[in-house]
Amino acid sequence: MAQLSSRGRHVGRPTWARALWAHGFFYSRVWKGSVTTSFLFPVLYLAAMGVGLGTLVDHHTHTVGGVRYLDFLAPGLLAGTILQVSVNESTYPVMARIKWIRSYWAMLATPLSVRDVLIGHLGWAVIRGVMVSSIFLGVMAVFGAVHSVLAVLVVPVAMLASLAFASPTTAFAATTSKENGFALLYRFGVIPLFLFSATFFPLGQLPTAIRYLAQLTPLLHAVNLIRGLTLGRLVVVQNLFDLAYLIGFALLGCALADRAFRKRLVV
């Protein structure tokens, strides 16, 4: 519990935790719209593509990557959803809090520092990753697409992936002055990654050059890890590399976001 000394100096929750709390509080007031979509999206996709399209695929090729199409697709979609949510949380909302509703400036007039504001934002993106991946896993279980107890580790992987996706996006949102850049980010970043990161089909289906290109992008590594966990089929060397890649990407993203926030908010 927070203590107030006689001089009004505050000892208690760390300042970054106050910023994080504010995101949660805000969400608790406006969550109703988003929760249906977080349930609906996995249900609709898994029903249409996993079951509908999957039946057709399985009929022709028997298995994809050695498993039913639904089992192959579901973890890919889960990772893709984390990407979308992380990017959504870090584009317009970040620009709005800097430029439009300016709530970051309100936070900076209080004991909070620029780094607290950033930690609050990225921490919230990570919490959203937990929420989204838990819901998605639950839906997957209902569809019978979870095949290993290792699947519980999807949640920490989702946290790491959320940070890896949210941090560079945040750096971009805090650097760009116009929102036009976001449309380009979705068109040439999010959508191609979503389609070509072994989400819908194995990487082996792609030409060699594109396969190497895909190795450089972060979503593929999240897909590899999450798929390995829900299928219970980990490939140690590959998956350790996936993990290292995501950690490296997240660290780089955080450093860039920190620099961008400092440049934009300390003037």
Binding site: A2, H10, G12, A22, F26, V30, T110
Partner: peptide, 22 residues
């Protein structure tokens, strides 16, 4: 720099929490 999507009271609440007030 108000949070326009929140209520008047919630704006005070969220701001007070930045100062860690109970």
């Amino acid at each position: 720099t108000l949070d326009e999507e929140l209520t008047v009271l919630d704006n005070l609440l969220i701001y007070g929490r930045y100062f860690d007030l109970p």
